[in-house]
């Protein structure tokens, strides 16, 4: 079985985001980059499928040269090889999906897995759009995945608000991973050392022959407003409770 896993490099979730006025992108100097956490669940699931059914896990990633760090990390976890679509351009989900779908088409696959969304811009579009580009069935926000390699059928449980849904679909398909699907492994140290010997094929975005005109343009970014200091009510419990009720009603307007 050949599995493609789409991996995005994002700023570490603990990063303090900085912006200059008028910026259309965050300040990236000194930022620590990591694999999108949802993509880690996707990688882990692919590795488990490979361990059960055999085959190959190919990492597919898009972005500037720094992305190679994330690719090496995925290879250290156990992926077999990688394709890096190189670009320094700012691109939107649509262009990313077109490029990734094009590479996937050339590469061939039985299954495509990625995170349900990237934690940088949180758009949750690329997985779904790749499925659309390739005309594949898809199931998103998956928390349990069963693949029957013989019958080439997938049974996936996906998370809904307050419920879950079981979906059955044929292979090939696109799966997007939610937290809870698995517990991603730590790369073992021998695998970290082996990762540097694995193949990473670099493909310039411009060489793919896909339309790279973005559909979305960022006008401006602003940081969320600082939260005002908390109000602490003092005095007798009875009066404090009255004041709290008044504030909830008049200021917060929640009751």
């Amino acid at each position: 079985m050949k599995i493609l896993v789409l991996v995005k490099q994002v700023p570490d979730t603990a990063t303090k985001i900085r912006l200059n006025p008028g910026d259309t992108a965050i300040q990236t100097d000194g930022i620590k980059w990591v694999i999108n956490p949802y993509d880690e669940f996707a990688i882990e699931e692919c590795l488990r499928l490979k361990e059960k059914a055999g085959g190959e896990v190919v990492v597919l990633s898009l972005g500037p040269s720094r992305v190679e760090e994330a690719i090496r990390q995925a290879l250290a976890m156990g992926a077999d090889r990688a394709i890096h679509v190189m670009t320094d351009a700012v691109i939107d989900s649509q262009v990313a999906a077109r490029a990734l779908a094009k590479v996937a088409q050339e590469e061939g696959y039985d299954l495509i897995v990625t995170g349900k969304q990237a934690v940088d811009d949180d758009q949750a579009q690329v997985g779904a759009l790749v499925a659309v580009e390739l005309g594949l069935p898809q199931v998103t926000v998956v928390i349990e995945l069963n693949v029957d390699v013989e019958s080439r059928r997938i049974r996936a449980e996906r998370e809904l608000e307050g419920a879950s849904e079981i979906v059955e679909l044929p292979m090939p398909a696109v799966i997007t991973a939610q937290r809870g699907l698995n517990e991603p492994r730590y790369p073992t140290l021998p695998n970290i050392m082996k990762a540097k010997k694995k193949e990473v094929k670099s493909v310039p975005l411009d060489s793919l022959g896909v339309d790279t005109t973005p559909w979305v343009r960022v006008e401006e970014l602003t940081l969320p407003p600082e939260r005002p200091a908390a109000k602490i009510l003092t005095g007798e419990p009875e009066e404090a409770a009255k004041e709290l009720a008044r504030l909830l009603h008049e200021e917060a307007k929640v009751i």
Binding site: R72, A76, Y186, L189, I192, M193, A195
Partner: peptide
């Protein structure tokens, strides 16, 4: 080296 950075990060996470 990139290996040393990745080893340190893996041990730190653990």
């Amino acid at each position: 080296t990139p290996d040393e950075v990745m080893i340190r990060q893996t041990v730190r996470d653990f």
